[in-house]
Design a protein around this nucleic acid. Structure first.
Lengths: 406, 406
DNA sequence: GAAATAAGTCAAGACAATTGACTTAATAAG
DNA sequence: CTTATTAAGTCAATTGTCTTGACTTATTTC
């Protein structure tokens, strides 16, 4: 029917897809509920007891689940609960920031087992790539000392760095984030480590972390408002991270905000509500290694210039939250980022009262806005959580055939 | 493991899920590509020739596909292309608007076969429900005269009405849209028609229509900016309509816009860029039956008050498009709605040049903004397209088990 | 005319979930 | 203290769906 005309279609599926999905569903259920018996799993997943038994046996054989003590409760044969084996799988996450890179190893349930960081030399990837590969290697070595099986059970490498990706680069900065984005990073890392590599921006990584071990755990619709050097949103929609057509969904830094006062020009959100704007406002040096500590201290004091920025930024964030609620209709909005926790907390407080929005409903179960992780390691954790999610979370794409046969 | 504690888990799947998915994938491929041979389908879906043959045979038996003339092309046995049978399935769509309700019947490929409209009496659902049921009944009867099989092949009823849904009602208007939203409409319609009923807001319905037969056909990431009495966005993300946690995603009317000039208060977008705002600006009566014609005429003239509104609204839309691009990273933004086409066209032109955004990339294949349907029947069409999509489009939820056995 | 190529079929096989009867082990009831 | 009831979990056979590999058919190219 077609010469070279491209045929567009989604993939079909087969037994393998079915089986893979059911395995993922069971792992997901165990992660979400802590421990469940085979009978529980059967009811929850709508699969038969027999099927659940078969899959559990398989998962147990693979070292992904283990049985706990028998539980007596009411009539009937006592049940044997199962839970995930924490060290049933590992993943490594890498955060590439302006002047520093962090790597972390996590296990199947999101515990951080190893962390390591290194300074990135200025000059971008030409010099930095080596630093990164060494850092990953050292994390991998250390992980191997904690678990003999770590190498065998390593499911991938997740990378997080500031977006947006794939843009025609216009401006650059001394730390050459743009150069990083043009560099064939994924290929280099895949070749250098032999691992499957995934990429997210900071905000998405944060959301991934919140979903695995944070306040977004078990939520299918949540947005992480990530306040870092820039500002971004990590989108969890229908239980999966949403990336958009080009991987740039949620890059809200370029959104134009309402002017604060008469005569002010419209400004991009990231010039008003981001740590970069705070540094500028307070005349701080972004490269100062003690910056985080200083900011934390300032946040606990009554520093007037900080208070001024908080007041202004909270206004923009209040507006941002309202837009996010209005556009996404999420269960909750999570404030996270690399700001020191006292600062994030003060920002949260300053955002109160929130603007009226569609999110104000009596049937709400969760707060409209919650504080998420502010740990500087959260992004690396999210980066590491991504391969775990890719390997074990139920998702449409995991069902589809990836190669043809016949 | 649990007393009454609720266990949260996703559903598993089985052979039926596999088969259902593969059927949907084939139908989707045929819809998207017009006609394909079994060999084409096998390559495109990654299923084996044999599997494709089996499914095609089944679909042919179900009257959903039919074979075309054999095509000779190059070496090898000539291929037999298949295409969808237009009248292989039908659905009815219902639009409930302020003072009017429209019903349309479409077939499997989105052709509108029947349309009918009725005035809604003031007073909300207490009197309107009957009008609606009668209208649906008349469409159904007329459809039956066009196809003997229509009743057997009717897959559902789709309803579209202005959102947001499930809110604590604050203000109301004479046409009592709020009352409609509180009324158990879906239950009433399901009981009154015996059909499966789905609900969307206007903007989502518009997006559904654009995806089935409009400029979003085949796109996996697109946003429809719907300009009606209010304003909303219909979100196609990952190839599916996105509804949010409570079905209100895309209800952007409440977004606060940047002030137009010093001293102006922040205003909700729907008070500035919506037909309601135009009516107010021009002193038009929204209930005037000739309104659409008058507006169309005005749009073709050089009416200064209309030109003034266009200038203002275009500014807000420009900003809205930039936010949408920044947040969703879609392949394209589609302007649609119930404004007369000349008006929509002028608005589009007035939006040029668009604000700089992440969407400006050299690798773009589609325009950043495109004009979609402005037909007053587009929403009813989208409403009717929804059950077709629900029944035939590949989607994650269609794979999952819905009832337990064992 | 023979070789190459491609579409499509046939029949057997493989895989994974389902079915229904059965076993095991506890509590509740008399 | 015995028996009935309830629930967890297993066993073995069955079913549904896709895959496999060999085969047939039809066309073009050499």
């Amino acid at each position: 029917m077609n010469d070279a005309r491209e045929i567009r279609a989604k993939s079909g599926t087969n037994h393998e897809g079915t089986s893979a999905h059911n395995r993922r569903v069971m792992i997901d259920a165990l992660r979400l509920n802590g421990s469940l018996s085979r009978a529980d799993l059967s009811r929850a997943t709508k699969l038969t007891k027999q099927t659940v038994s078969n899959i559990i046996e398989e998962l147990e054989g693979d070292g992904l689940v283990l049985s706990l003590d028998v539980v007596r409760k009411g009539r009937g044969q006592p049940s044997t609960p199962y839970k995930l084996v924490p060290d049933g799988a590992f993943a490594i996450g890498l955060q590439i920031d302006r002047h520093v890179t962090r790597a972390a190893a996590v296990n199947l349930i999101g515990n951080v087992l190893v962390r390591a960081e290194a300074n990135l030399p200025p000059g971008g990837p030409s010099r930095g790539a080596k630093v990164i590969l060494d850092l990953i290697e050292s994390v991998r070595k250390e992980l191997a000392t904690l678990s003999v099986q770590s190498e065998k059970r390593l499911v991938g490498l997740g990378v997080a760095m500031p977006g947006p990706f794939g843009m025609d680069i216009v401006d650059d900065d001394p730390w050459m984030m743009a150069a990083w984005q043009n560099f064939p990073l994924l290929e280099t890392l895949a070749a250098g480590t032999g691992l499957d590599v995934g990429l997210q921006n900071d905000a998405s990584a944060s959301a991934t972390a919140e979903r695995m071990v944070g306040v977004a755990n078990g939520l299918d619709h949540a947005v992480c408002l990530y306040l870092g050097y820039g500002i971004g949103a990590g989108l969890i929609l229908n239980g999966e991270l949403y990336n958009g057509a080009n991987g740039n969904a949620g890059e809200i830094g370029m959104v134009l905000t309402p002017p604060r006062h008469a005569g002010e020009r419209h400004q991009a959100l990231e010039h008003r509500a981001s740590l970069a704007s705070l540094y500028q406002h307070m005349g701080l040096d972004p490269a100062d290694p003690a910056l985080h500590t200083k900011l934390a201290a300032a946040a606990l004091s009554s520093e007037p210039s900080l208070a001024g920025w908080i007041e202004l930024a909270a206004g923009d964030l209040r507006w941002s939250v309202q837009i996010i609620e209005t556009i996404f209709d999420p269960e909750t909005v999570i404030i996270c980022g690399s700001a020191p926790e006292p600062l994030a907390r003060r920002l949260m407080q300053a955002m109160d009262p929130l603007l009226p929005s569609i999110a104000e409903r009596r049937t709400r179960r969760l707060p409209r806005v919650q504080l998420g992780m502010t740990d500087p390691w959260a992004v690396a954790l999210g980066a590491a959580a991504e391969p775990i999610s890719r390997a074990f979370d139920p998702r449409f794409s995991a069902i589809l055939k990836t190669r043809a046969n016949g």
